[in-house]
Design a protein around this nucleic acid. Structure first.
Length: 277
DNA sequence: AGACGAACCCGGACGC
DNA sequence: TGCGTCCGGGTTCGTC
């Protein structure tokens, strides 16, 4: 599942190859992948626009275009955005092809059809797409104080809080479990019971889990691929996610799996006790 | 406000 | 081998 580290990996790769390129054509093999405007308008309005920058906000990849336009992409669960040469083979889950002026194309593939493309004409319309996102966890401006304010403001368990994109942008099921393990905090731990030290550990856990993911070019458990179609490496380095039954890397206790907020949740019952600590 | 379930999807796993 | 069923997961939305 593409989360912040996976989208950031794609962003960094694409940035070096598509900035300055111009879209010259669009082929939608599944028009339902266009969120806005209509698929017909999308096909008409994208060609001719030049890519000026490649950015990321939470799990959104954002191509800044000339004249203030922008193309935002959300991969949801199984989406891929791959730069391939025109005429290269096309996979069975191909949903859209965005042709560029250098003989390459961006292929949007999505097995489960949850991913969406958003083409918007100005900053206000882009802000509307991104309106609900909380702070960027890897920004220098996201401090322990910010996390403390969030934790004091919200009354809930830690896992649903961290999954909420309005609270913090970019974490998903994998990196939430990894961050909580690093922090030594149980997924069901209530925000009200967190000490200042717990909050500090949580901040560090979030940052370290995400940075490791980026260093390893993302986590490929099934469908994630980078902009070249290559799998990531972080799945080899996960501490608890999908590791139930295997020894905790810190204490050796078998990792357990439970269901929290409707998600498979992995944790060490010894290193992440539910009682305050 | 927050908890929960449904909906959107479909490949893969599982049971028979 | 084949078929029916369940599962999962990011996000939104409706309901309690």
């Amino acid at each position: 599942m593409p989360e912040l580290p996976e989208v950031e990996t794609i962003r960094r790769d694409l940035e070096r190859h598509v900035v300055g390129r111009r879209f010259v054509g669009v082929k939608l093999t599944w028009p339902g992948c266009i969120d806005r405007p209509s698929s017909e308008a999308f096909e008409r309005l994208l060609p001719g626009r030049r890519i000026e920058a490649v950015e990321r906000r939470g799990k959104f990849l954002i191509l800044r275009l000339d004249d203030g336009w922008a193309l935002a992409v959300h991969l949801r669960m199984t989406g891929r955005l791959t730069r391939r040469s025109q005429g290269s083979e096309r996979g069975r889950h191909l949903r859209a092809v965005l042709r560029l002026d250098d003989g390459h194309e961006l292929q949007f593939e999505d097995q489960r059809k949850f991913g969406r493309l958003y083409l918007v004409p100005d900053a206000a319309a882009l802000a509307d797409v991104l309106a609900k996102l909380g702070p960027e966890p890897l920004a220098a401006t996201f401090t322990v104080d910010d996390l403390r304010a969030l934790v004091r403001r919200r009354h809930t368990a830690l896992k649903p809080l961290l999954l909420d994109q309005r609270a913090i942008a970019g974490l998903g099921n994998i990196y939430v479990d990894e961050a909580l393990f690093r922090a030594g905090l149980h997924p069901l731990r209530r925000t009200e019971t967190l000490s200042d030290d717990g909050i500090r550990r949580l901040h560090a856990g979030i940052v370290e889990a995400l940075e490791q993911g980026i260093r390893n070019r993302g986590t490929t458990l099934s469908s994630y691929r980078d902009a070249w179609g290559t799998a990531g490496l972080n799945q080899e380095q996960l501490l608890v996610f999908r590791r139930e039954g295997t020894p905790c890397p810190r204490c050796g206790t078998p990792i357990e799996k439970m269901r929290v907020a409707g998600r498979g949740t992995h944790y060490c019952p010894r290193c992440q006790p539910l009682s305050r600590q």
